[in-house]
Structures are given as C-alpha cells and as structure tokens.
C-alpha cells in the first residue's frame, strides 16, 4: 500500500474508554481506499464502538473518552478528525453509517432517501432531488421495487428492502467512507446476498468498513480483514 495515496483512514495509538474501562488499547492501523475492510471478533470487544469513533457518533451517546489520533483522507486531504476542527455535520456526511437494524425514519420512502438533502437545504430544485433519489435507489437495486410507491410509509418495506433504503439514504450525502455495522445480521440469506452484491459494487465510489460475524460472508466480500480482540486490532 502506498502510504501517501492508498491510505484512507489511519489510526495512531487509538485508545477508547467508557468510564474506567478501556475498550480499545493503543490501536495502530490503516484502511485502504476503495477497499472493503471487515472487522471481526467476539461480541462486546468494541467493534461497533470503533466504527462510531470514525464518524464521532459515540459523542452523541456520551460517557466515553478517547486518546490518540484518527486521520481520514477527506476531499484529498488527511484530516485529524478530533483535532482539526473539521465541522461535525460535514464529517458525518463524508463518513456515512449503516446500522445493524434497518432504521427508516417514520416518513415516506421518498422523504427518507431525500432526507440528507433536506438537512443541507438542497431540496429546492425538485427535478434534481428526484433524479438523485432515483439514482440512489437504483444503485441499491431498489428502484424497480419501489418506484410505484415512493410516497408509502418506508416501514412497510421488507427488512432487506429497508436496509437497502438505509444504504441509499446514506449514499445521498455522497460519502467517501461508509461504515456498516453488521448490515445483514437481521436479514435472511437472499436479502443478505443482495446487500453483499451491492457492497462489492460500492467499492468503486466508497471506502467500506464493515463489522461482521459471518466468516463465510467475510471471505466472499472482504479485501482486508482485521480482528478486534482484547482491545487490539490485528491484521488477518
């Protein structure tokens, strides 16, 4: 890996604490650009916490403390996300996240996907918004399934469709990094297969970091595998 161009995320001596308990212990690691890196390891080791450190989402939960450096290449520049005063909302648009449970907002399919645009006030040009919504839904193989019911409640979709909707919603912000916290854990095999295919395609536009418990899945899709045990992250 060329350290100047291929490295998308670099962790240096990263430690994380919840109260007195150390969850992550002086982690040093690099994540390649346009690759799908999977993080595996036993439950309760801090895999999800590690993801939320990369978009500073743990700060919304509170009670944690961080040490060390987290650098992410955003818009071509390496940014220390905890020291460089990078605007938080911009960071989270560039580093999107998809959760374990599909979590559509209590609104229509269309409004769910257009929600990130609404947040930045970019919904005045309706034609552009519609085009972007269609593009995101097509990218996640969902357009043909929902094009006739865009204004239905998003929660009426199946679990797999909801998860693809959440990925489409995350893609609307055009993220450079997409964090996925066990995105297929609550889905059946067929729905999981569709998501895997989608993730493989997304590598061309995003750097993907996925937490997974399914070793078969990891073998199928991962370019890079890391194991988190006892607070340490080891390359496989």
């Amino acid at each position: 890996m060329n350290p100047n161009t291929d490295c998308k995320i670099r962790l240096t001596d990263l430690s994380f604490y919840y109260g007195p308990r150390r969850i992550l212990d002086r982690i040093n690691a690099s994540f390649s650009e346009h690759a799908l890196t999977t993080i595996i390891g036993p439950s309760g080791q801090g895999k999800s916490t590690l993801l939320t450190i990369l978009n500073r989402l743990w700060e919304e939960i509170g009670g944690g403390r961080i040490q060390g450096k987290v650098e992410i290449r955003l818009d071509g520049h390496m940014v220390d996300i905890y020291r460089d005063l990078h605007p938080l909302d911009r960071l989270r648009r560039k580093v999107g996240m998809v959760f374990q449970e599909p979590n559509p907002l209590p609104m229509s399919i269309y409004k769910n996907v257009a929600f990130p645009l609404k947040l930045i006030g970019a919904t005045k040009d309706w034609h552009a918004v519609e085009a972007k919504v269609q593009s995101a839904l097509s990218q996640t193989f969902l357009w043909n399934e929902v094009k006739d019911r865009l204004h239905h409640d998003a929660r009426t979709l199946s679990g797999g469709q909801q998860q693809r909707l959440c990925i489409a919603r995350a893609l609307m912000a055009q993220p450079e990094v997409l964090l996925l916290d066990e995105p297929t854990a609550s889905l059946d095999a067929r729905a999981a297969e569709v998501i895997e295919e989608l993730l493989t395609r997304l590598k061309s536009t995003c750097t993907l970091i996925m937490v997974s418990h399914y070793l078969e899945q990891v073998r199928r899709v991962a370019d890079q595998v890391m194991e988190l045990t006892h607070g340490r992250l080891n390359h496989q």
């Binding site: 989270r92 648009r93 999107g96 996240m97 959760f99 907002l105 209590p106 929600f115 990130p116 947040l119």
Partner: peptide, 26 residues
C-alpha cells in the same frame, strides 16, 4: 428509542435538526 436518536446525526444532522426534524415529529 436510542437507535432513533442516532439516525439523523449519522447523516450529518445538527442537534437542532435532529430534535425538530426527527425526534419531535416522532
């Protein structure tokens, strides 16, 4: 639910956007 509180911030919403666009309507 706590999960609902994290959806909008993960998409880049500010605290006020999260409160008034997601939490209060819900």
């Amino acid at each position: 639910p706590n999960a609902l509180r994290l959806i909008a911030p993960a998409l880049g919403a500010t605290r006020m956007q999260n409160i008034f666009r997601v939490l209060v309507p819900k």
